[in-house]
């Protein structure tokens, strides 16, 4: 069902983890549709993305697109990162099954959300960047099993 690239990124995700005191953190998606992506960016004073990490709750495609998105973002400038589209992520993975294309949209949104957080923290205005949706818990507060 998945391409070899997707399986590779799912099995060996690149840049999985957290960054403490990250320059920007963005969380997108919602539990209802079953995918939540969180992206951490470490951006230096020149606006270059030095490091990136992700955490994802989701299917194989969601994990693979998160992983691929971090690879595409790393070493880019903020402006360059903003231009990374879901199409670019999908193509870099040699395609996704049609029902999974929404996962790649999530990857694009996660980059934008992290950049938005970075801009807010630093009082910057990044051209072409709008406020991300923040609906990850969909308003439900649930008890855990234990």
């Amino acid at each position: 069902m998945y391409s070899e690239k997707v399986m590779d990124h799912f099995s060996n995700p690149r840049n999985m983890g957290e960054i403490e005191n990250a320059s920007g953190v963005g969380t997108v998606g919602n539990a209802k549709c079953g995918d939540i992506m969180r992206m951490y960016l470490d951006i230096d004073e020149a606006g270059l993305i030095q490091d990136v990490k992700f955490k994802t709750f989701g299917c194989g495609a969601a994990v693979a697109t998160s992983s691929m998105a971090t690879e595409l973002v790393k070493g880019k400038t903020v402006q360059e990162a903003l231009l990374i589209t879901n199409k670019a992520v999908t193509e870099a993975l040699d395609g996704l099954p049609p029902v999974k294309v929404h996962c790649s949209l999530l990857a694009e949104e996660a980059i934008h959300a992290a950049l938005w957080d970075y801009a807010e923290k630093n009082g910057l205005e990044i051209e072409g960047l709008s406020k991300p949706k923040t609906d990850i818990h969909d308003g439900e507060e649930e008890e855990t099993y234990e």
Partner: peptide, 9 residues
């Protein structure tokens, strides 16, 4: 370990 939901919890 990969899950943001677990991290939040």
């Amino acid at each position: 370990n990969m899950s943001p939901l677990y991290e939040d919890y």
